[in-house]
Design a protein around this nucleic acid. Sequence first.
DNA 1: GTTCATGCAAAAGGTTTGCAGTCAT
DNA 2: ATGACTGCAAACCTTTTGCATGAAC
Lengths: 142, 142
Amino acid sequence: MKDPLEELGSHLKRKGLRLTEERKKLVQLILSMKGHFSPEELLKHVKTKRLPISRATIYRILPVLVSAEIIQQSLLTEGQTRFEVTWNKDHHDHLICTYCNKVIEFQHNTIEIMQREIANRYGFILEHHVMELMGRCKDCRN
Amino acid sequence: MKDPLEELGSHLKRKGLRLTEERKKLVQLILSMKGHFSPEELLKHVKTKRLPISRATIYRILPVLVSAEIIQQSLLTEGQTRFEVTWNKDHHDHLICTYCNKVIEFQHNTIEIMQREIANRYGFILEHHVMELMGRCKDCRN
DNA sequence: GTTCATGCAAAAGGTTTGCAGTCAT
DNA sequence: ATGACTGCAAACCTTTTGCATGAAC
């Protein structure tokens, strides 16, 4: 498994784009963060770390990182787009507590297989999917 | 199965809220529409039918209809919140064509059962879920 | 040197809100 | 009569964009 910066670099080269300081710094910051983030949350981290990256640049870099398959859009959004890191991670779905907003990641191969069957049945070529289970977690159920 | 207006009326009464002309008209319009809609699309329909309901009122009524369980939020949003009618309809999930945006509704009991098992395994009380399968439909696969 | 990327500030959606007037109960 | 509801316009938040400057190749 390559280094994420090399990954990004070769992706950019393939597309005739450039590996700028801003892109390098932002990828490193994102990979150092746990969990999911919105552009505005990311901006806060950038400000906290005093990285010289503007809001506009963040909004412009995020789609590049998606197409480089380092991050992906994630979760049902309320107002803000959310992203999560996919680089070097297995696919998973989410359990979300509707009370404390805790997010648990899980995998379930049988469901994945069934999803492909459903897609086939309707003549679809499956590209990706979202499955999110919402409820009260064990700390919030009373 | 009651009439949706009665349903709404008794829900509103229970909450000490009022059954206004705007709410009646909007429910009827929504129920006459097929599929999913955003607030702005709904506003267009309202204008087309020359109903005297303002944008602000639409945005204020939609959450009321959600809590009356006549509609629910639906689908991954790109920019706009989307809703769909749930009143008098069975639960279903979605297959979405990433090329033509066609939406197919389907049901799959085995997956529903497995979702409940997953929730149990992690100590969650499941409230609801979203499952969306994205891919190329048979008309768009080449 | 060429072309792409960045920062800034303005603009562009979508959604919310304060206020004064209106209507359901 | 009371308190909820509506319309309007302004405000708000997130995201996008035009333009001049700066940097990667």
